Simulated assay, not measured.
Amino acid sequence: MPANHRYSARTAFLLLACTVLASCSSLSGMSSSSANPVNWVTPYKIDVIQGNFVSKEQIEQLRPGMTRDQVKATLGTPLMASLFHADRWDYVFTLKRQGVEPQSYKYTVFFKNDQLERFEGDTMPSEAEFIAKLGSRRKLGDVPVLEATEAQLSKAAEKSKPSPAAAAAPVSPPSGTPATAYPPLESPKQ
């Protein structure tokens, strides 16, 4: 490489470095999180779902006088059942998602003489509302129709039918190939 090209490449690199450094100082007025290249890429954080989800439909099925087993069949096993509060079951549910404030729901049922006395707690979402919250933000496109038409079914049936010549001809190994003998499936009884 000739000497004059080497010096021009160094000069160009030096000018580029100075320009980059000068532009960094002009970004000082911007927020530090948007200017920092490390903050441009964020790691993936999984959704954390903890506890027992209790829907509005399940709450509507509760009636005073239900037994503990009936309540457990309706709402599921409680997340917290304390020895010190044997007549109280707590259902706690939390949902933590990336980019969304954590959501927490609490519902408590109270028993008296092993019968449901009362129940109270947060306003619970319906099952449809909860599923909508879990929906992915990414849209992967339309879901294809998974049902075949009559024309497609008849076309597939025609393809799967064997030809009459193939059905009449017995299947035998090619000439010159010995027949394969397989061992018995069960050992002889002794």
Rank of each mutant, 00 (worst) to 15 (best):
38 V>Q: 08
47 D>K: 13
99 G>L: 02
77 T>E: 14
75 L>E: 04
45 K>M: 05
71 V>P: 02
117 E>D: 14
55 S>D: 03
94 T>M: 12
56 K>F: 13
68 R>P: 00
54 V>G: 00
110 F>H: 13
82 S>Y: 09
69 D>T: 11
59 I>G: 03
89 W>H: 04
46 I>H: 13
82 S>T: 10
92 V>T: 14
74 T>G: 05
39 N>C: 10
118 R>Q: 08
90 D>V: 12
104 S>F: 08
87 D>F: 07
41 V>N: 02
51 G>R: 06
59 I>E: 12
51 G>H: 00
81 A>D: 04
64 P>R: 14
54 V>C: 03
100 V>Y: 12
69 D>M: 04
79 L>A: 11
80 M>V: 14
98 Q>N: 10
107 Y>M: 04
35 A>C: 07
38 V>G: 04
59 I>H: 08
86 A>V: 03
68 R>A: 09
91 Y>E: 02
87 D>R: 10
58 Q>N: 11
36 N>W: 01
80 M>E: 10
36 N>F: 02
78 P>D: 10
77 T>I: 12
120 E>Q: 12
89 W>Q: 03
90 D>F: 04
105 Y>P: 00
94 T>A: 13
38 V>D: 06
113 N>D: 15
90 D>N: 11
41 V>W: 00
49 I>V: 15
60 E>R: 15
82 S>P: 00
42 T>H: 05
87 D>L: 04
90 D>P: 00
72 K>M: 08
57 E>N: 05
99 G>R: 00
70 Q>G: 03
67 T>F: 05
114 D>F: 08
46 I>T: 13
93 F>W: 15
100 V>E: 13
75 L>F: 08
106 K>R: 15
36 N>G: 00
80 M>S: 10
74 T>W: 06
78 P>L: 07
98 Q>G: 06
58 Q>D: 11
107 Y>N: 07
79 L>Q: 12
114 D>S: 10
76 G>R: 11
116 L>Y: 08
101 E>G: 07
76 G>L: 07
51 G>V: 00
99 G>K: 01
92 V>G: 05
100 V>S: 10
99 G>Y: 02
111 F>K: 02
116 L>I: 08
65 G>A: 03
88 R>L: 07
116 L>M: 07
77 T>Q: 14
88 R>E: 10
66 M>T: 04
83 L>F: 07
40 W>G: 08
55 S>H: 09
100 V>K: 15
60 E>Q: 15
51 G>K: 01
111 F>N: 02
105 Y>S: 01
117 E>P: 00
86 A>T: 06
68 R>W: 02
46 I>K: 15
46 I>P: 07
80 M>Q: 10
38 V>L: 13
92 V>A: 12
84 F>G: 08
109 V>C: 06
71 V>G: 03
90 D>K: 14
73 A>C: 03
76 G>P: 00
50 Q>C: 05
89 W>R: 01
117 E>K: 13
52 N>R: 15
69 D>R: 11
